[in-house]
Amino acid sequence: MTKPLLSIKNLTIDYIGETADFRAVDDVSFDVAHGEVFGLAGESGCGKSTIAFAISRLHKPPALIRNGQILLEGRDVLGLDPRELRSFRWREVAMVFQSAMNSLNPVLRVEAQFYDVLRTHQGMNRSQARERTAEMLRLVDIPPDRMRDYPHQFSGGMRQRIVIAICLALNPKIVVMDEPTTALDVVVQREILQRINELRKTFGFSVLFITHDLGLMVQFCDRIGIMLAGKLVEQNSAGNIYTKPQHDYTRKLWASFPSLHGARLMEVAAS
């Protein structure tokens, strides 16, 4: 096997309390290969978002990384100094956050939210940035002339596509998607995932996909990790997670799905 793109080793994260601590992530290890879509599934509060935050080192007190390593192409992310960290963020790891409605700054034009990334990381001037912004917006089917608009002038699905466009503006190596579609309705959800898949094939980035929706995940991911109470209890290919779940908890998760959904998934897995 070739060297993985992202490698998480024995990651342990606590939330510090007034007297006792809460262990959100407990000794988790997994790899994501180049171009792979890796899924992390589990109930809310199981620690999957905490891992996502740790990859870009976005945590604030009271979160505390107790132990472990995060390596991106062999580079130790937890050892980066503030300057290195700033240039690492977005250029290497981009992120799509849970709420489509709230990921864009409501008081800045869309254009400005592209521009600050492009200027910070690539030193572009306004007109270069505008060109790149137009290019990125076209990729996600947003008319480029709307870059002068404010976020509230777009629908939820459009906003999420804008976020994805911002994510890809620097050609990152991996995009972390933390429940990217939960706030959207089912049709828009599918549309967006398909779009991400196409883009992934074009640009070749990896995806760390986080959701509580195991059904959605099986359709979309190459490999899947199942999390329970901070621990990674099972890790396998998407097909195996669906057809041959090993851990009790994975079986329970499947049992909680309505059978109609399950039947359709069966076809997907078979194909």
Binding site: I16, G17, P61, P62, L64, N67
Partner: peptide, 19 residues
Amino acid sequence: TGNRLSRWTALIRSGEGRL
């Protein structure tokens, strides 16, 4: 802010973890 934050700071200082 209070106690949580001071515990957190103390843990960082003593090298028991990082961000």
